[in-house]
Simulated assay, not measured.
Amino acid sequence: MLKDFTKLDTFLTVVRERSFSRASAKLGISQPAVTQQIKFLENYLDTKIIERKKNGIRLTGPGEELYKVAVRLEKCIHDADADILKIINKKITFRLGTSFTIGNYVLPGECLNSLSQVINNDVKLTIEVSRKIVQMIKDRQIDLGLVESPVAEDDLIVREWREDELVVFSNVPIPKILRPEDLYTFKWVCREEGSQTRLVVQEAFEELGVACRDFDVLSEVSNTTAVLQTIKRAKKDTEHPTVSIISHHAIAEDVQNGVFYEARLQGYTMKRKFYIVYHKDNKHNAYVNNTVDFILSGKC
């Protein structure tokens, strides 16, 4: 069993996520595959290691002991991976692609330098809309992508990364909590048809019974940067503010500095996931694996 860490990695993910379904999404494999791997461990050890509960999972006594062993092995493997990359000493330029929101506002400034040290090579960052990043991965133009929308492609591996919240914002003060009827009093800058942000917003408005067709829409734009610039330059009309919806990461600093004002919908939180995406052919690529581990560790 110790020759193949995959099953123990699945076990660690189930324990940390406290859910078979969340572990499935995190690992980019089906839930039955997760269950099968846990069952293999239990058959190998001839004992129950995980009990499913209504509110998650619980480790048995042997499961607790296995978790301690697996954590030690995980650390040794990560340390060994770093040493192996030094031995390879292969000079490459690792190609990382991100969406506009992630690349410009979510990744900390020091992330690329830290990642470069982890893989002992240069990192080139490409920022594009999510669908373009996915296509570039398929075309082998980039090695790994960080995107805002779920991806269903047989030749790609998709892993959940972190959660994002969308908020309403304007260049003039607006109520911090917006009722559905408040939304009709604004002038709107919307994202283009088919964007992930627009899909999340449509879902929220449908649940709240809000009819977007009755909005006063000034324009549709294609990316986060365009949204920011359009709202920043909009006429400061306190009676009928110009608003849009954006990741709270993208405006955090401007909200703190009083440039923008943000609001949330009454009784509804607009949330979405960010995802890590790479080609299945890179499943055993040491540079890709170390980059994924580094990003999932929360250091990036």
Rank of each mutant, 00 (worst) to 15 (best):
residue 2 L to S: 07
residue 4 D to V: 08
residue 4 D to H: 07
residue 11 F to P: 05
residue 15 V to L: 09
residue 17 E to K: 14
residue 19 S to K: 05
residue 22 R to H: 02
residue 23 A to G: 09
residue 24 S to A: 15
residue 24 S to T: 02
residue 27 L to I: 04
residue 34 V to Q: 09
residue 36 Q to R: 15
residue 38 I to R: 01
residue 43 N to T: 14
residue 48 K to W: 10
residue 49 I to E: 08
residue 50 I to Y: 02
residue 50 I to E: 06
residue 53 K to E: 15
residue 53 K to M: 14
residue 53 K to A: 11
residue 54 K to C: 00
residue 57 I to D: 11
residue 58 R to G: 05
residue 60 T to R: 03
residue 64 E to R: 12
residue 65 E to Y: 10
residue 66 L to W: 09
residue 66 L to N: 09
residue 72 R to D: 15
residue 72 R to H: 13
residue 80 A to M: 13
residue 81 D to Y: 12
residue 82 A to N: 06
residue 82 A to P: 00
residue 83 D to E: 15
residue 83 D to F: 11
residue 83 D to T: 07
residue 88 I to D: 13
residue 89 N to E: 14
residue 90 K to S: 12
residue 90 K to D: 13
residue 91 K to R: 15
residue 91 K to C: 07
residue 92 I to T: 15
residue 94 F to N: 12
residue 95 R to N: 12
residue 96 L to G: 03
residue 96 L to K: 02
residue 102 I to T: 10
residue 102 I to Q: 05
residue 103 G to P: 01
residue 104 N to P: 00
residue 108 P to E: 05
residue 109 G to K: 07
residue 111 C to R: 00
residue 113 N to F: 06
residue 114 S to E: 14
residue 117 Q to I: 04
residue 125 L to P: 02
residue 127 I to K: 09
residue 136 M to I: 02
residue 137 I to R: 06
residue 139 D to K: 12
residue 141 Q to P: 00
residue 142 I to R: 02
residue 143 D to Q: 12
residue 144 L to S: 02
residue 144 L to F: 11
residue 146 L to C: 03
residue 147 V to H: 01
residue 152 A to C: 08
residue 159 R to Q: 14
residue 163 E to D: 11
residue 163 E to H: 06
residue 166 L to H: 02
residue 167 V to I: 10
residue 170 S to W: 02
residue 171 N to S: 12
residue 172 V to A: 10
residue 173 P to S: 09
residue 176 K to R: 13
residue 183 L to S: 03
residue 188 W to S: 05
residue 189 V to N: 02
residue 191 R to Y: 15
residue 192 E to A: 11
residue 193 E to R: 13
residue 198 R to Y: 08
residue 210 V to T: 01
residue 211 A to W: 06
residue 215 F to A: 12
residue 216 D to I: 05
residue 216 D to S: 15
residue 218 L to E: 13
residue 219 S to P: 00
residue 219 S to K: 14
residue 221 V to P: 04
residue 222 S to A: 15
residue 223 N to C: 03
residue 223 N to Y: 01
residue 230 T to E: 13
residue 238 T to I: 13
residue 241 P to W: 08
residue 243 V to S: 06
residue 246 I to R: 07
residue 248 H to M: 11
residue 248 H to F: 03
residue 249 H to Q: 07
residue 250 A to L: 01
residue 251 I to F: 06
residue 251 I to Q: 04
residue 252 A to D: 11
residue 252 A to Y: 08
residue 253 E to Q: 13
residue 254 D to A: 11
residue 255 V to T: 13
residue 256 Q to M: 04
residue 262 E to L: 01
residue 263 A to E: 06
residue 263 A to K: 08
residue 264 R to A: 03
residue 269 T to G: 01
residue 270 M to C: 11
residue 272 R to P: 00
residue 273 K to E: 05
residue 279 H to G: 01
residue 282 N to Q: 14
residue 283 K to R: 13
residue 284 H to Y: 14
residue 285 N to S: 15
residue 285 N to T: 09
residue 289 N to I: 09
residue 294 F to I: 03
residue 295 I to H: 01
residue 299 K to E: 14
residue 299 K to V: 01
